Amino acid sequence: MRRLGSVQRKMPCVFVTEVKEEPSGKREQQPFKVLATETLSHKALDADIYSAIPTEKVDGTCCYITTYKGQPYLWARLDRKPNKLAEKRFKNFLHSKQNSKEFFWNVEEDFKPVPECWIPAKEIEQLNGNPMPDENGHIPGWVPVEKNNKQYCWHSSVVNYEFEIALVLKHHPDDPGLLEISAVPLSDLLEQTLELIGTNINGNPYGLGSKKHPLHLLIPHGAFQIRNLPTLKHNDLLSWFEGCREGKIEGIVWHCNDGCLIKVHRHHLGLCWPIPDTYMNSKPVVINMNLNKFFKR
Results as ranks from 00 to 15, higher is better:
residue 225 Q to K: 15
residue 87 E to D: 10
residue 138 H to Y: 13
residue 35 L to S: 00
residue 30 Q to G: 03
residue 247 G to S: 03
residue 121 A to F: 11
residue 195 E to H: 01
residue 8 Q to W: 09
residue 175 D to N: 15
residue 213 H to D: 09
residue 262 I to P: 02
residue 288 N to D: 09
residue 247 G to W: 08
residue 100 S to F: 10
residue 7 V to M: 11
residue 54 P to S: 03
residue 85 L to A: 11
residue 191 E to V: 07
residue 98 Q to P: 00
residue 111 F to N: 05
residue 238 L to D: 00
residue 27 R to S: 05
residue 247 G to C: 04
residue 249 I to P: 07
residue 29 Q to C: 09
residue 152 Y to F: 15
residue 144 P to K: 03
residue 48 D to M: 06
residue 8 Q to A: 08
residue 54 P to C: 08
residue 91 K to M: 10
residue 43 K to R: 13
residue 53 I to H: 02
residue 81 K to V: 15
residue 227 R to G: 03
residue 110 D to T: 14
residue 7 V to Q: 11
residue 293 K to T: 15
residue 59 D to Q: 03
residue 241 F to K: 02
residue 112 K to Q: 14
residue 275 I to K: 00
residue 6 S to G: 06
residue 189 L to I: 11
residue 192 Q to E: 14
residue 87 E to K: 15
residue 173 P to R: 02
residue 186 L to E: 02
residue 241 F to N: 01
residue 287 I to G: 04
residue 267 H to C: 12
residue 96 S to V: 15
residue 114 V to L: 02
residue 182 S to M: 07
residue 140 P to V: 13
residue 159 V to D: 00
residue 240 W to E: 09
residue 231 T to G: 12
residue 35 L to D: 04
residue 72 P to W: 12
residue 1 M to A: 13
residue 158 V to I: 12
residue 214 P to K: 11
residue 59 D to L: 04
residue 293 K to E: 12
residue 240 W to A: 10
residue 253 V to R: 01
residue 119 I to R: 08
residue 165 I to Y: 01
residue 150 K to W: 08
residue 278 T to M: 02
residue 244 C to R: 13
residue 67 T to D: 09
residue 224 F to A: 02
residue 219 I to W: 09
residue 229 L to S: 00
residue 25 G to A: 02
residue 241 F to W: 11
residue 270 G to A: 08
residue 120 P to L: 10
residue 126 Q to I: 13
residue 87 E to H: 08
residue 18 E to R: 13
residue 190 L to K: 06
residue 178 L to A: 03
residue 11 M to E: 06
residue 220 P to V: 12
residue 290 N to A: 14
residue 293 K to V: 15
residue 185 P to N: 07
residue 56 E to S: 05
residue 259 G to I: 09
residue 270 G to W: 09
residue 169 L to A: 03
residue 50 Y to M: 08
residue 234 H to N: 06
residue 7 V to G: 00
residue 64 Y to G: 00
residue 163 F to M: 06
residue 249 I to G: 03
residue 9 R to I: 12
residue 174 D to W: 06
residue 97 K to C: 15
residue 260 C to M: 11
residue 217 L to G: 08
residue 12 P to V: 05
residue 54 P to N: 06
residue 233 K to D: 13
residue 274 P to F: 12
residue 68 Y to M: 12
residue 277 D to I: 12
residue 185 P to K: 07
residue 80 R to N: 02
residue 129 G to F: 08
residue 67 T to H: 10
residue 19 V to T: 15
residue 173 P to C: 04
residue 222 G to N: 05
residue 9 R to W: 03
residue 257 N to I: 14
residue 169 L to Y: 04
